[in-house]
Amino acid sequence: MKNSRPLLTYGLVLVFGAMALYFWSNSRTLKQQLKEDQVTTQKLSARLAMHEALLHGDSLVIRGNYDDALQTYSKEQEPETESDGAAIEMRMAFAKSFLALQTQKREMDSDPIAELDTLPTATAEPSPSEINTIDSLTFAVEKMRVQVTRLQKQLRNKASGQYLTFTTSKGSVVHYVGEVKDKKANGIGVALLSTGSRYEGQWKNNQRHGQGTFYWPDGQSYEGTYSNDKRDGQGTYYWPNGEKYVGHWKADERFGEGIFYGKKGDIVASGIWEDDELVEEPNRRRK
Rank of each mutant, 00 (worst) to 15 (best):
L7R: 05
Y10M: 05
G17A: 14
A18S: 13
L21F: 14
L21P: 05
R28I: 04
R28A: 01
Q32I: 03
Q33H: 12
K35A: 14
T40G: 00
Q42M: 12
L44E: 05
L48C: 03
M50H: 08
S59T: 06
R63Q: 05
A69Y: 05
Q71F: 08
S74E: 07
E80W: 13
E80L: 13
S83T: 01
D84E: 14
R91M: 04
F98I: 05
F98N: 06
A100L: 11
Q104I: 08
K105D: 02
M108V: 06
A114N: 11
A114V: 05
L116W: 03
L116E: 06
D117W: 10
A122E: 15
S127P: 04
S127V: 04
P128T: 01
E142G: 01
T149H: 15
R156H: 06
S160F: 00
Y163K: 05
T165S: 05
T168P: 10
V177I: 14
D182T: 14
K183H: 13
K184P: 09
R208I: 07
N228Y: 12
P240W: 10
E243H: 00
K244Q: 02
H248R: 09
W249I: 01
G256D: 08
G258V: 06
I259C: 11
Y261N: 04
K263C: 02
D266L: 05
V268W: 03
G271I: 04
N283Q: 11
N283W: 09
R286E: 07
